[in-house]
Design a protein around this nucleic acid. Structure first.
Lengths: 332, 332
DNA sequence: CTGTTAGCGCGTTCAG
DNA sequence: CTGAACGCGCTAACAG
């Protein structure tokens, strides 16, 4: 920056000002500075600026998986809202692992984000402590925790799964199974299973029809294996709810391979409303959750929270419920 | 850090040493320091450390889209290899837009990454200049540019598409169409189309069977629309190669909806070997490219290049060709 | 509108 | 094995 300043015949401070928006530098001076910047190929060093301004200009966002269109849609929604705000999004993937989340939280906090977003309401004790002590806005998304850390943008995964069970019941199905993961790694998946179990109980439908098919994230292939296992053990089943659209699609494709009519022999429902579900044949009945909308809401909230924080007027904890709907299509 | 030092009865310097691996601090002192760190909930500030050590501890990775399992698999591969190396991956998505890539390159360079990875071999002039001037290792991946910036990990998209055309020709198909984007935004898509056109020419097959279906990224729905358009205009077509598995799947599902037998009426081939293609029914013929392997190779290269750079012995430009294969399945 | 001074919170370097 | 002085590259705060 000193080199640029010398070349433009000004002080470093003036260069610093010229390089940031909304500053008071005369047009002529700015032009000379910009020319010097171009000539020298200078690129501002934010790490130094950060140290004196105490603003890093980024927010940390932790999602379970990059390769899940629900979460990448949410991440895109956040990034979209943050565009042009001077806040960049730094993405981390936890692989559905709370310990990895804990590590990532610390790794992110070391870089001093201006806010942090985590997925879900369950975290390790250490992660909770660090998040609470970080002194920055914290958002939990894709869930409705009972004891939130601070801000929340999400919906009840249990209620959403329950709504789907009620829908299937309303369609006349009476033996409704559930396909999900075999561990509690995916906490949203666990909540969905609980919501399913509760709905089945309340509707007085047969219980014990839960198939656990390996460690989350449950992918298409596991859905296919699970449906074969399920119908082998419980041939009376006439509908199945899957933890996500991916496993539901795997189940659907396997049924097609085996000549089991969907929905004739068996109805299939997914969760998440992936693009896949709108395009496959037959189109998949699913729970729509507006993943991009969650991201946009989180982005807006981040903007408000970070701005308030700078003005020393912390935003009171917000809880935003996002909608979910049962989208009945051709597999039920 | 001064607070921690005071509490542990040592100097700040000793705390700094205790907090990083492979340093020379006595066990007793370290224990006291760690206790103080826990008591105070102290989290190291990397932004400050970065300034004096001149090592930011992260590498920038730019991919076209988060929501594309090929690229997210690659990103995961990179992250996996970087784990435990002290290098973190900072991900950016360009939305298949070279101008957005240019902006992201500058935004990343402002934070002084120790290396940068970009997708593809085409960039704006300004981005090329900045990458070349950054003084850090640069990797281009998912392509085999003729004039690489420095390191390359990838394959020829044109050759891969050509190989699929030859495969279809070998199966006896004689009127082979192509479905892809209508702009050159997706430069890998453009290369695939060129590879297709060249192969068709060399095999003396009918030309003019290219369907452009909107701005990339081409998703499932566009594949479905394109196949209807295609067969309406060129009923003689007996096989189609799609720019990616997503559009191929969309085309497949639309054929099923309309009762067009695949591969009886029409063969369909995709590109990328997404999980979807291995699971759908019928299983999709595609070009397999080992997206995760590309990521792992990039990760290894980054480790070597960054280490060499620190020792003032820059790694000579590397070019790694990654394999692709035609995976014949049930749609051809 | 522009310059000067001081300092952000660490790690490097050297001395003990 | 530990400590002290110094500076990384920039921006806040104030003065002019």
């Amino acid at each position: 920056m000193a080199d640029v300043a010398a070349r433009a015949g000004v002080s470093a401070m003036t260069v610093s000002r010229a390089l940031k928006l909304g500053s008071t530098v005369s047009a002529a001076t700015r032009a000379r500075i910009m020319q010097a910047v171009e000539d020298l190929g200078y690129v501002l060093d934010l790490t130094a600026g950060t140290l004196s301004s105490k603003r890093t200009g980024f927010v940390a966002v932790l999602i379970p998986s990059l390769n899940n269109s629900n979460f990448s849609d949410t991440a895109r929604g956040i990034g979209h809202r943050l565009e042009g705000s001077g806040l960049q999004m730094l993405l981390g993937a936890t692989d559905y692992d709370l310990l990895k989340e804990e590590e990532l939280v610390e790794a992110m906090l070391r870089r001093r984000p201006e806010a942090i977003v985590v997925t879900g309401g369950r975290h390790t004790e250490r992660a909770r402590r660090q998040l609470a002590a970080a002194g920055i806005p914290v958002v939990e998304m894709w869930d409705l925790p009972e004891a939130p850390l601070e801000h929340v943008v999400g919906f009840s995964n249990a209620a959403a799964a329950g709504a789907m069970v009620e829908h299937l019941h309303g369609c006349g199905y009476r033996s409704i199974a559930y396909i999900g993961g075999s561990t509690d790694r995916d906490t949203r998946g666990t909540d969905r299973r609980r919501g399913y179990e509760r709905a089945v109980r309340e509707l007085k439908l047969p219980a014990g029809l839960t198939i656990a098919c390996g460690a989350p994230p449950i992918a298409m292939q596991q859905g296919g294996e699970a449906i074969v296992d399920l119908l082998g053990r419980h041939p009376e089943v006439d509908a199945v709810l899957c933890v996500s659209d991916l496993s539901a699609f795997g189940a659907l494709a396997e049924c097609q391979r085996r000549g089991w009519a969907v929905p004739g022999r068996l109805a299939i429902a997914g969760f998440g409303d992936f693009e896949l579900s709108r395009c496959c044949h037959p189109r998949l009945t699913t729970v729509s959750v507006d993943a991009a909308g969650i991201g946009e809401a989180v982005g807006d909230l981040l903007l408000r929270a970070v701005t308030s924080g700078r003005d020393k007027a912390p935003l009171p904890p917000q809880t935003l419920r996002t909608p979910f709907t049962v989208t009945a299509r051709e597999t039920s």
